[in-house]
């Protein structure tokens, strides 16, 4: 993977289960999708069911931090593009639902699997990956090791997502 560094402010999502099992309907409700698929429209409603103040306060570069099973439920991809629409480039979670994980990779949103329990709202985080993926919490001075991405996911993510990947190759390269 090409070296990459993302810096941003931790935005801890809590919801009914202290950050666990944040489903895609909580990220963006299905009924909003009925009105528009435009990420710039949908970003206004991010997390409205569980954190109504989030959308207005999110800033480009912020990093979402959650517990386990982030993005469970519906496979709807707007739950990824709406997050990207708000300028967020990475989500940290203890685990992801598989559909959210693949949608994230396919759109160039970095899903980072690590132990998020010690991260607090507002902490300044630096995600870096050269040989391995690391998350440095500059507020607490802790460094977490994250799961690295398998090769084909790296290729897709490095290309910028599945669209640029396919524009480049026209098919999967195996």
């Amino acid at each position: 993977m090409s070296a990459l560094e993302l810096r941003g402010c931790a935005r801890v999502i809590s919801g009914p289960r202290r950050g666990d099992d944040i489903n895609t309907d909580y990220i963006i409700t299905s009924r909003r999708k009925r009105e528009s698929l435009d990420p710039q429209v949908l970003r206004q409603y991010l997390f409205e069911e569980i954190d109504p103040a989030f959308a207005a306060s999110v800033a480009a570069g912020d990093i979402i931090v959650a517990g386990k099973n982030f993005g469970c439920g519906s496979a709807m991809e707007v739950a990824v593009t709406a997050v990207l629409g708000a300028g967020i480039r990475a989500v940290l979670a203890r685990s992801f639902s598989r559909t959210y994980y693949r949608n994230a990779i396919n759109n160039g949103l970095l899903p980072v699997i690590c132990d998020t329990q010690g991260i607090h709202e507002g902490d300044l985080l630096v995600i870096s990956h050269d040989a391995e993926m690391k998350v440095r919490n500059t507020t607490t001075n802790e460094t977490l090791t994250a799961d690295t991405l398998p090769q084909i996911m790296l290729d897709i993510f490095d290309a910028g997502g599945l669209v640029p990947y396919f524009r480049q190759h026209g098919d999967f390269r195996v």
Binding site: A75, V80, R98, N107, L162, V163, F172
Partner: peptide, 20 residues
């Protein structure tokens, strides 16, 4: 298994999908 919209687009293009 369930997939996303981008995966469906890739299948429209290539008939294939990546899976773990």
């Amino acid at each position: 298994t369930g997939i996303g919209s981008s995966d469906l687009a890739a299948i429209l293009m290539s008939g294939r999908i990546w899976l773990r």
